[in-house]
Simulated scan of single mutants.
Amino acid sequence: MATFFLERTVPLPREEAWRRITDWPRHGDAVPLTRIIVSTPQPTHQGTVVVARSGVGPLTFDDPMEVTLWRPPTQDLPGLCRLDKRGRLVTGWAELEVHPGPGGRTRVLWREELRVRLLPRLFDPLLAASARYVFGRAVNALLRRP
């Protein structure tokens, strides 16, 4: 499995950073060639299913994910969301967190473990580096725009 970690410190309240990184349809705006479909009723909760459909034309695949942990930030606790990937091609998990940061800022953490079933483990370092780049840009975009 390819594992990667991202950390950003932003001048946003924790609740706003949380809202931005868990606004699933906006992830599709930030990840190239990807559209996000939320197939369960809003608001997000444990059990919410999010599907990332990536590709072009007939070369598309679905990356279904289920929210298995949903804890929005409170005054006493950081926010934590865990998504378990349930696809035939892509498996693994992602954890998104928001914590108080220095000077009233917010720390956003993104940890992810990916496995692409048809890709030999030899390519895990390349997959991790590519995912870190793509998701790093996505996190930057999500946190930059309201």
Rank of each mutant, 00 (worst) to 15 (best):
E16Y: 01
A17H: 05
R19I: 02
R20M: 04
R20I: 00
D23A: 14
D23W: 10
W24H: 14
P25F: 06
R26P: 03
R26M: 04
H27V: 10
H27K: 14
G28K: 07
D29Q: 15
V31C: 13
L33M: 11
R35L: 05
I36V: 07
S39T: 07
T40P: 01
P41F: 07
Q42Y: 06
T44M: 06
Q46F: 01
V49C: 09
V49D: 03
V49Q: 09
A52L: 09
A52F: 14
S54D: 10
S54M: 12
V56F: 15
L59Q: 07
T60Q: 14
T60V: 10
D62S: 13
P64N: 08
P64G: 09
M65D: 08
V67N: 03
V67W: 13
L69K: 11
L69M: 10
W70A: 11
R71E: 10
R71N: 11
P72Y: 04
P73K: 02
P73F: 04
T74N: 00
Q75H: 12
Q75A: 14
Q75W: 01
D76W: 08
P78Q: 02
L80C: 09
L80M: 03
C81M: 07
L83V: 01
L83W: 04
D84V: 12
G87V: 06
R88F: 10
R88H: 15
L89N: 11
V90P: 12
G92Q: 02
W93N: 02
A94F: 04
A94R: 06
E95I: 03
L96F: 08
E97M: 03
V98M: 02
H99W: 03
H99K: 05
P100K: 13
G101C: 05
G101P: 10
P102L: 09
T106H: 09
R107K: 13
V108P: 03
L109F: 00
L109Y: 00
R111Q: 05
R115F: 10
V116C: 03
R117C: 05
R117P: 08
R117Q: 08
P125V: 12
A128G: 10
A129C: 05
A129H: 03
S130T: 08
S130F: 07
A131P: 07
R132W: 08
R132D: 04
R132C: 05
Y133S: 15
Y133A: 10
G136F: 07
G136L: 08
R137A: 14
R137N: 15
